[in-house]
Amino acid sequence: MSDDSTKTMWATFATREAADRAVEHLVQQCGIARTDVFIEPNAGLNTAGIKPSGGDAVRADAPLHGEIRVSADIAHADLLDAEKAFRQAGAHNVMAR
């Protein structure tokens, strides 16, 4: 989104479980469209985070190659609520541009 009324906000998470929780908070609590929320590795490799959680906790081969980044295009009016949703889900390094 390139219009001046939105910013891209992102945060990193230690586990995929926390990243998924952040997405649900953004969609359900902040009303952000799911199509405006993105999940990707913070580094280049596919990853389940930096520590196991959920189903990864029972696997010996979980791909733990770095944190997971969640980003979303957010209206200025929703930035504080979105930051709160990220932090409630366990975010590290919440940023916006």
Rank of each mutant, 00 (worst) to 15 (best):
S71C: 04
G54T: 00
M1W: 12
G31H: 07
F13H: 02
R34N: 09
V27Q: 12
P41V: 10
N46C: 13
A22P: 03
K84L: 14
T12S: 14
A19M: 00
K84Q: 13
L79S: 03
L80R: 14
A85M: 02
H92L: 12
D78R: 06
R21S: 14
A18G: 00
A18D: 14
A60M: 11
R16Y: 13
R21E: 10
S71Q: 04
R97L: 13
S53R: 06
G55H: 07
E83T: 10
R97A: 14
I50A: 09
S53T: 05
H76Q: 12
A75W: 00
D4Q: 10
A57C: 01
A62Y: 04
Q28G: 14
P52C: 00
A11V: 02
D81N: 13
F38T: 06
D61E: 04
R97P: 11
G44T: 01
F38L: 03
A62D: 00
M95Y: 01
R21Q: 13
D73K: 12
Q29I: 07
S5F: 13
A60R: 10
A85S: 12
E67C: 03
F38R: 10
Q88L: 15
L45Y: 04
E67H: 11
M1P: 10
W10I: 00
G90K: 07
H25W: 06
D20M: 11
L26I: 00
R21W: 08
I39W: 01
Q29P: 02
V58T: 08
D61Y: 01
R97K: 14
L26C: 09
A43W: 03
M9A: 15
Q88H: 11
H76T: 08
E83D: 10
A57L: 09
D3Y: 05
G31E: 10
I32Y: 08
E40M: 12
S71R: 06
D61F: 03
L45K: 10
G31Y: 01
A77R: 08
V23S: 00
L79D: 06
D36Q: 13
S5Q: 12
G54W: 02
Q29L: 15
R97D: 14
A75N: 07
A33H: 09
Q29D: 15
N42D: 14
M1R: 03
A43C: 02
R97H: 13
T12N: 11
F38G: 06
A62T: 05
R69Y: 09
N42R: 07
E17H: 10
A14D: 15
A85D: 05
A43Y: 04
Q28A: 15
T35Q: 14
V27T: 02
T15H: 02
A57P: 10
H65Y: 07
E40T: 09
E83F: 07
T15M: 04
E17S: 08
F86D: 10
A19E: 04
D56T: 01
D61G: 05
R16V: 02
A57K: 03
T8A: 07
G90Q: 05
L80F: 12
A60K: 09
D73W: 13
F13S: 06
R16Q: 13
S71I: 04
K7N: 01
I68Q: 01
H76E: 11
L80T: 15
A89K: 05
A33M: 05
N93S: 15
V58E: 12
R21V: 07
E17P: 07
A19R: 04
D81S: 15
D61W: 06
F38S: 10
A14Q: 12
P41G: 03
E67D: 15
F13G: 02
E17I: 01
I74V: 07
